[in-house]
Amino acid sequence: MIDVRLQLSVRDARRRFDLDLAFATDAPFVALYGPSGAGKSLTLQALAGLLPVRAGHVRLNGRTLLDTAAGINLPPEQRGVGYLFQHYALFPHLSARDNIAFGLRSPWGRLSPADAARVDALIDNFGLRAMAHSKPAHLSGGQQQRVALARALACQPQVLLLDEPFAALHTTLRRQLRSELRALREQLGIPALLVSHDPEDVLALADEVLVLDGGGLQHRLLATDPDLRRALDHAL
């Protein structure tokens, strides 16, 4: 069960954006869907502890990650969240293997034997053995995505956050990786939240759809809704 209530504001020199959002769901795969600027990525960042929240809470399977009223605000590394950023955010100076292992290393840069074995298993599971020592600039878009996803899973998260994971990929590769991602989530048995404004992503992956616009929740839709595609098209 994911239980979220978020109130926050972000601003720059020209504008201010307010997010005021609440939802609770036990769906295995949830899509946050809507136009650009709806607040989808901000929601993921707040869930991960990367943005200050003015008021609200985040609870995951009964565990409180954030409760402003109670003074609880776990730092990102204690939240048990795996985050796949839109542009993958791989470290360009590190190899694929070192990128995957980054969050597991001690302050002295070492990996425990158990963590090293986990990294090697992820490399094999994602078909990255041949390019494990290659840097991101020498990897294809699909390979970079697999490295970023393996890194997100290395710390054994309790929830997986996916911010436009297919945006940089061509159509054929998108279809292949959607299938792989759904199978992976089912294998891991952890909930996933996907940010997208592509209806094909939603139709292929989501069990429940939260339609956002203007920083708030506008509609909730289920994958079983016979008018889902029409509703998605209308939401943009």
Results as ranks from 00 to 15, higher is better:
Arg118Leu: 01
His170Trp: 10
Lys135Glu: 12
Asp163Ile: 07
Val81Asn: 05
Leu161Thr: 03
Gln176Ser: 13
Gly82Arg: 03
Leu188Met: 04
Phe85Thr: 08
Leu181Cys: 10
Phe102Asp: 00
Leu177Met: 15
Val147Tyr: 00
Pro199Gln: 07
Ala206Cys: 02
Phe85Ile: 09
Glu208Gly: 04
His93Pro: 09
Pro107Arg: 14
His133Asp: 15
Leu162Cys: 10
Ser134Trp: 04
Arg146Ile: 12
Glu186Trp: 10
Gln187Gly: 09
Asp198Lys: 05
Asp163His: 07
Asp124Tyr: 09
Leu84Arg: 00
Pro76Glu: 02
Leu128Thr: 06
Phe91Ser: 08
Leu205Gly: 03
Pro107Tyr: 08
Phe91Asn: 07
Leu184Trp: 05
Ile190Pro: 03
Leu181Tyr: 02
Gly82Ile: 05
Arg129Ser: 15
Tyr88Gln: 02
His197Asn: 04
His197Ile: 02
Asp207Tyr: 12
Arg175Ile: 12
Gln176Arg: 14
Asp120Val: 05
Val209Thr: 11
Asp120Asn: 13
Gln176Thr: 14
Ala167Ile: 04
Asp124Ile: 12
Leu122His: 00
Gln187Cys: 10
Phe166Ser: 02
Ser106Ile: 11
Leu205Tyr: 07
Ala114Leu: 12
Gly71Lys: 10
Asp98Gln: 08
Phe102Tyr: 14
Ala130Thr: 14
Val159Cys: 07
Arg178Leu: 13
Asp201Ile: 04
Pro113Tyr: 09
Gln86Ala: 08
Leu203Ala: 12
Ser134Leu: 09
Asp201Ala: 07
Pro199Asp: 09
Pro107His: 10
Asp163Arg: 02
Leu194Arg: 03
Arg174Lys: 15
Arg175His: 14
Phe85Leu: 12
Ala154Glu: 04
Ala101Ser: 14
Tyr83Trp: 11
Leu161Pro: 01
Gln156Pro: 05
Leu205Glu: 04
Tyr83His: 07
Ala114Phe: 06
Pro157Lys: 00
Pro157Cys: 06
Gly109Ile: 10
Ser179Arg: 15
Val147Met: 03
Ser140Val: 06
